[in-house]
């Protein structure tokens, strides 16, 4: 079953200068879908356009069959879609506990129970719950960001380069955790620079270049594809203009 579909998306910050020039994508439910591509291909823009942070001027986005093109970003959570930005994805001046209470503020009586459930899932965060989130290590920050996303019980999580700036070990942990969420029925759509690791975990992969779809297919196939291998997996890096 398809959870999230984007069709012919045209989007950009300035009306006449689209960064995405008609990109399509669909993310299967309870699967990991990864978007890769060279710098400037529009990967982050695509995920931001879905999240309502970049205006979409053409095309449509559907979530479980219902149209959600150009949503108000603050209403995405209510639709069951969580978005984890690439950097600055936690509130540094708040404590870890306050970060979680903030996203749980509309949960009413359940809030405390749900917060404790998250602390059970992430014991490392529970130990530091009264510390300022800004004091966390990179990997822990990323887990706090994921915990904040999970707080709203999302059906879809959009992640923008979750492994950026992390040590290889921490990156692997975060990606594996994202993968494990699919077992609970969560759909994951992520942008990654860390192509090899991402392809190993992902089910399906889209390659973008210059705001357009380039190739897509099962992640396994792309991992073994010699051309993709040469361009993205350690072979000569080709930079698209």
């Amino acid at each position: 079953m398809t959870a999230l579909v984007a069709r012919n998306i045209v989007a950009g910050y300035v009306p006449d200068l689209p960064i995405l020039k008609g990109v399509s994508l669909s993310a299967e439910a309870a699967r990991v879908t990864v978007i890769i591509g060279p710098n400037g291909a529009g990967k982050s823009t695509l995920i931001k356009a879905i999240a309502g942070l970049v205006p979409v001027s053409g095309g449509m986005v559907h979530l479980n069959g219902a149209e959600i093109t150009n949503p108000r970003p603050d209403r995405m959570g209510a639709l069951g879609v969580a978005y984890v930005p690439q950097s600055d994805n936690i509130f540094r001046s708040l404590t870890i506990r306050q970060n979680l209470d903030l996203v749980l503020r509309n949960a009413g009586k359940d809030a405390a129970a749900r917060r404790e459930a998250l602390f059970t899932r992430f014991p490392a965060l529970a130990d530091k719950q009264s510390e300022k989130a800004g004091a966390l290590s990179g990997g822990q920050r990323q887990f706090l960001a994921v915990a904040m996303a999970l707080a709203i019980n999302p059906s879809v999580i959009l992640m923008d380069e979750p492994s950026a700036g992390l040590s290889p070990k921490a990156a692997q942990e975060v990606l594996e955790y994202a993968k494990s969420l699919t077992e609970q029925g969560v759909t994951i759509l992520l942008v990654e620079q860390n192509v090899k690791q991402a392809l190993r975990l992902a089910d399906h992969c889209y390659i973008l270049a210059d705001g357009r779809n380039q190739v897509d297919g099962a992640a396994q196939d792309l991992l073994n594809d010699p051309v993709v291998g040469q361009i993205y997996l350690g072979g000569k890096r080709v930079t698209h203009a």
Binding site: G12, Y13, V14, L17, I19, N39, G40, G42, S44, T45, Q86
Partner: peptide, 10 residues
Amino acid sequence: AKNKSRLSNT
């Protein structure tokens, strides 16, 4: 001004 949009896309 035209180049601005490209700069903000990372």
